[in-house]
Nucleic acid binder design. Structure first.
Lengths: 241, 241
DNA sequence: GAATCTAGGTGTACGGCGTACACCTGTCAA
DNA sequence: TTGACAGGTGTACGCCGTACACCTAGATTC
């Protein structure tokens, strides 16, 4: 029969790639097993021959993305190395706005994530960090180490929802809100006119990310130089007043 | 008719409280309009006379929790004031393990969140921060300002899943993982024996949270003292090598 | 070549979800 | 008495994830 054209057969890898693409362009909320199957020209249950269930699908998608990150090159100075790794992670994740939430929702140590963390820790240890300090540093960097700062109001989250990719205008905070929360208003309005390079947009995500990152890295470097130890440490102070 | 005992009537507030309680004890994933209605002895559609839809329900739940945070007391020294506010936020959120993800999933400026942010910003401005620096600081603190650090692996996320609240033992990282990721293993094992106060548990969440928080606050204080300005600033450096 | 195995795609069906919409009922104002 | 209206009800629709039985084509074995 001439009509039985066999499309390239399914495979776990093909499924994961299609899933990532679908989430990218249609939003994670419209990634269903059914939609994904249709995209692949296949019946929904066919997917289950390659992934155990939807959670495992999500884990796989995460690994695909994390695999795109190039880890810090060992041997170099720890600070620029870690910094570059984190910025690379950020760039990888920015292509997939749904990823941060997905990663957090399934707080799982997938192999790809572990590999990335391991190489980062390795860079720290090679840079003269004690195991203890390296541990705390990893916590301090938190999710930033994977390239997302988990802003409270993350505008990039909505991307891909509509398909169109206009960065949607500033939405300059309604006056009754400004009246009730004057300090918020002060910051919001200051940010929008101050900087020539950030016309229109509320603020420059990349700048804010690097600001916080460098704040941490600088503090960390200071602790390292001081030979930080957890007892009697001269590091971040616990004092109350 | 004696049989028509009228239970206390529904109200938006009663619904929100019941929803929070249900999410606390059964996990956010089993908070459905149907379950919630049953909990309240009412038919599912009854809820829609008080909340527009499930998203609005979630927003309301978030506001209930954020409302429990006591904001930094103005007038005091900015650093201990902000620190205390953030630790209070952390404590409030720790009672509701589902809250961080819910807050991030619906990146919305609810009134309660705005109020909290506003008072925090106010404290900064009163403490001598420029509007610009205050802005960057808020970004740098990120979600930490609401009391969660968004760890990559957040053990508290699972709480309430089973109903029992044993803190479930360390789960000491299977040997094949340890072999493949030696640096991760080094940190994981070091953390578990090193500190007498943290027996069994991998590491002390509270300590890590405060470590990162103080790292940031100390760096911020340094910038403030130097009279940080966005151009030609002596703050966190952008240098690559 | 025929029988058998098996990997992988199919079809049907179930229970759960959010919620639109029409409906009923008790309360209270006019 | 009437009528409006706030608020609880019942039914139904379309979506979801996925269990389970089935089919089918190619490989394996004799």
């Amino acid at each position: 029969m001439a009509g039985t054209l066999r499309r390239t057969p399914l495979s776990r890898d093909r499924i994961l790639r299609a899933a990532v693409a679908l989430a990218d362009q249609a939003g994670i909320e419209s990634l269903s097993m059914r939609n994904l199957a249709q995209e692949l020209g296949v019946v929904p249950m066919a997917l289950y021959k390659h992934v155990a269930n939807k959670d495992e699908l999500l884990d796989g998608m995460i690994d695909v993305i994390v695999g795109e990150i190039d880890p810090p090159t060992p041997g170099a100075d720890w600070k620029p190395a870690v910094r570059a790794g984190i910025l690379s992670a950020r760039q990888a994740l920015r292509r997939h706005p749904w990823a941060p939430l997905a990663i957090e929702a399934r707080n799982m140590a997938t192999p790809a994530i572990l590999a990335y963390l391991d190489s980062t820790i390795g860079t720290l240890l090679a840079g003269g960090f004690s195991v203890d300090l390296a541990h705390h540093v990893m916590h301090a960097l938190g999710s930033r180490i994977l390239g997302f700062s988990q802003e409270l109001f993350d505008t990039s989250r909505d991307a891909g929802r509509t398909g169109a990719s206009e960065p949607d205008p500033p939405a300059p905070l309604p006056p009754e809100v400004a009246a009730r929360f004057p300090h918020v208003a002060a910051i919001a309005t200051a940010a929008s006119h101050d900087d020539a390079s950030v016309v229109g947009q509320g603020c420059d995500d990349q700048f804010e990310f690097e600001f916080a990152l460098d704040l941490l890295l600088d503090g960390i470097e200071r602790l390292r130089q001081q030979g930080w130890t957890s007892s009697g440490r001269p590091g971040p102070g616990h004092q109350g007043g």
